[in-house]
C-alpha cells in the first residue's frame, strides 16, 4: 500500500438514542491535508475516536490504509500518528521517558530511539525540558509533547484533533509549520480545527460536518465556491516583495478580476468573476507580470464566510 488513505463506510456512532455520527461515508487518499470543520458537538472528535478504536462503531466501518481499525487495530494504526482530545501524559515520567515509551511501542529500532525522540522534540521546541517531569509542565507544553508523540515513528497518516488548542501564538505557528512539513513528506493529515485561517493556510481539502452528518467534502476552492456565491473565487495573493501601484492597476484590468483589495504591501485579495477555471487563468496572467508571487490561496475569510453560511443553513 503506497498511497496513504482513510475511509469511512456508513460509519455511525450512537450514544444511547443520541446519534453522534450518522452514516459517514468518506474516502481520503494521498498525501494531503484535510481540515475537518464543524461546530461544537458536531461529531469531529467522535469520528477521530472511531478511527483510533477508542470507541466502537454502532455500525459501519473505519479503515486506515485499507485495514479495518476496529477489527485489526494494531495493524491499522501501525503507521499512524494520533492526537485525540488533549491526552494527559503520566505526570511523573519525564518528557524523554514518555516519548521513549511511545517510540518503543511504535517499533522505532532500539539504536535510533534516542535519535527519533530528539528529532520530534526539536520540532516542537521542547529540548530544554527533556528530563523534566511532565506533571510540572504547563498545558501548552504538554500539548507540544502530544504533538511530538504523534510524529514519532514517521507516520504515513496523521490524525489530529484540534492540535493547536492550548498553544501560544508561537506554538500554533510552529505546529502549523510542522504540519506543512509533514505534507511535503507524502503524509496524509486529517485534522479537526476551529481555526479557519489555520485550515485554509495548511489544508488542501475540507470536510464539513454538523449534527453527525457530513455536509461537504472536497478541495477548499470547490467547497467555497459551492456554498457561497458572493464570495466565489476570492483568493489571497501573497508576494515576496512589496507591490507597486502600477502593477496593481494592471492586475485590476485582468480578465476575470472583479475587484482588488490591498491588504498590505505584500498581500492583496482578488475577487474573481468565476470559479476554478477563472482562478487558473488569472494566476497564469499574474505570473507573467513577474511580481513575485509566493502564495495564491482562497482567502481565509472566504472559508469563514462559507463556514458561516453552511452552518447557518443546518440549524
Amino acid at each position: 500500500m503506497n498511497v496513504p488513505s482513510i475511509q469511512a463506510i456508513s460509519l455511525t456512532k450512537k450514544y444511547g438514542s443520541f446519534t453522534a455520527l450518522s452514516n459517514l461515508n468518506i474516502k481520503i487518499e494521498g498525501a494531503k491535508c484535510v481540515g475537518f470543520l464543524g461546530p461544537n458537538g458536531a461529531g469531529k472528535t467522535t469520528t477521530l475516536k472511531l478511527f483510533t478504536d477508542m470507541i466502537r462503531p454502532t455500525s459501519g466501518q473505519a479503515f486506515i490504509n485499507g485495514i479495518d481499525v476496529h477489527k485489526e487495530k494494531k495493524k491499522a494504526l501501525a503507521s499512524v500518528g494520533t492526537l485525540i482530545e488533549t491526552p494527559q501524559i503520566y505526570p511523573s515520567l519525564t518528557e524523554r521517558e514518555a516519548l521513549l515509551m511511545v517510540a518503543e511501542i511504535k517499533g522505532v529500532p532500539p539504536d535510533s530511539l534516542e535519535k527519533s525522540v530528539k528529532e520530534v522534540v526539536d520540532k516542537v521546541k521542547m529540548q530544554a525540558w527533556l528530563d523534566k517531569k511532565i506533571g510540572k509542565m504547563s498545558k501548552g507544553m504538554q500539548q507540544r509533547i502530544n504533538v511530538a508523540a504523534a510524529l514519532l515513528g514517521d507516520p504515513e497518516v496523521v490524525l489530529l484533533d484540534e492540535p493547536t488548542s492550548g498553544l501560544d501564538p508561537r506554538g500554533m505557528s510552529e505546529v502549523r509549520d510542522i504540519i506543512k512539513d509533514l505534507k511535503k513528506e507524502n503524509r496524509l493529515i486529517f485534522m479537526s480545527s476551529h481555526i479557519l485561517s489555520e485550515v485554509s493556510e495548511m489544508c488542501d481539502e475540507v470536510a464539513m460536518i454538523d449534527h453527525g452528518k457530513l455536509l461537504a467534502y472536497g478541495p477548499i476552492e470547490d467547497v467555497v465556491s459551492r456554498f457561497s456565491d458572493k464570495h466565489a473565487g476570492v483568493v489571497e495573493v501573497s508576494l515576496i516583495k512589496p507591490i507597486k501601484d502600477s502593477a496593481l492597476k494592471r492586475i485590476r484590468t485582468i480578465n476575470g478580476v472583479r475587484s482588488l483589495e490591498k491588504l498590505d504591501t505584500r498581500r492583496f485579495n482578488l475577487k474573481l468573476s468565476g470559479g476554478i477555471k477563472t482562478q487558473q487563468a488569472v494566476l497564469a496572467k499574474l505570473v507573467k507580470l513577474n511580481i513575485g508571487i509566493i502564495g495564491f490561496k482562497p482567502s481565509s475569510s472566504a472559508l469563514e464566510e462559507t463556514y458561516l453560511s453552511v452552518f447557518k443553513e443546518t440549524v
Binding site: 477508542m54 487495530k73 494504526l77 485525540i84 503520566y90
Partner: peptide, 14 residues
C-alpha cells in the same frame, strides 16, 4: 479518569 489512556491507546498496541 486521568485521560492518560488517550496518550496510549491511539498507538498500534492491543
Amino acid at each position: 479518569q486521568n485521560k492518560t489512556g488517550y496518550f496510549l491507546v491511539g498507538n498500534p498496541i492491543r
